[in-house]
């Protein structure tokens, strides 16, 4: 007699977070639900000893270390947990790892807080979007979009997740962002 295996709470949460991230990235601009609010959840689902993380938020340092990831300077990190509300932060992001044409998977994953549904109007086109999609993202410095264009020389680039509580929006490097 076999009993059906049951995932523990951690496995359930990581699996649900990953499904949200996967849907967010394969359908850029659509709002997906994480099982709980917070960037810690994303770190738990993705990071371990094989990763190098960077954060500018002192409160995140301990949870990031607990995943086993090494905390490194921004330029060496493959997962960045940053706030992109100021021009200085966006300028710093300009030095992030973007991978190479040979190995585009070296490009960093950037997780940043934003207000979804408020602020600047954006129009998205590209893979995962049926035609075009409009959305509003607030709490981000307007220079981010020009910085992102400079970083994302496809297939090089960074992949962004914007989180607002338990809501998440994905913006892979393949998406073209137009302001307005």
């Amino acid at each position: 007699m076999q009993t059906a295996p049951h995932p523990d709470a951690r496995e359930q949460r990581d699996n649900a977070s990953f499904h949200a991230l996967m849907r967010a990235l394969s359908r850029p601009g659509t709002v997906q639900k994480l099982p709980e609010p917070g960037a810690v959840l994303i770190a738990a689902a993705l990071l371990d000893r094989e990763c190098r993380a960077y954060t500018d938020d002192a409160a995140l340092e301990v949870p990031l270390r607990q995943t086993g990831a090494a905390l490194v300077p921004l330029t060496e990190a493959d997962h960045l947990f940053v706030t992109l509300g100021s021009a200085a932060a966006v300028t710093a992001l300009g030095a992030a790892e973007v991978g190479s044409f040979l190995y585009p998977d070296g490009g960093a994953t950037v997780i940043a807080p934003a207000r979804i549904g408020e602020g600047a109007q954006l129009t998205l086109t590209g893979p995962g979007i049926d035609g075009r999609l409009s959305l509003q993202l607030g709490d981000l410095h307007p220079s981010l979009w020009e910085a992102r264009r400079r970083l994302c020389r496809y297939p090089e680039g960074i992949d962004l997740f914007f989180i607002d509580g338990a809501r998440v929006i994905g913006l892979p490097r393949s998406t073209a962002v137009q302001e307005g």
């Binding site: 990581d14 991230l21 990235l25 394969s26 094989e50 490009g107 893979p127 496809y154 892979p172």
Partner: peptide, 19 residues
């Protein structure tokens, strides 16, 4: 195991980002 899954998750996300 959990670390195998995390690696698959990271790679699946990157694969989606560069179709």
């Amino acid at each position: 195991d959990a670390s195998a899954k995390r690696e698959m998750r990271r790679k699946i996300l990157k694969a989606i980002a560069v179709p």
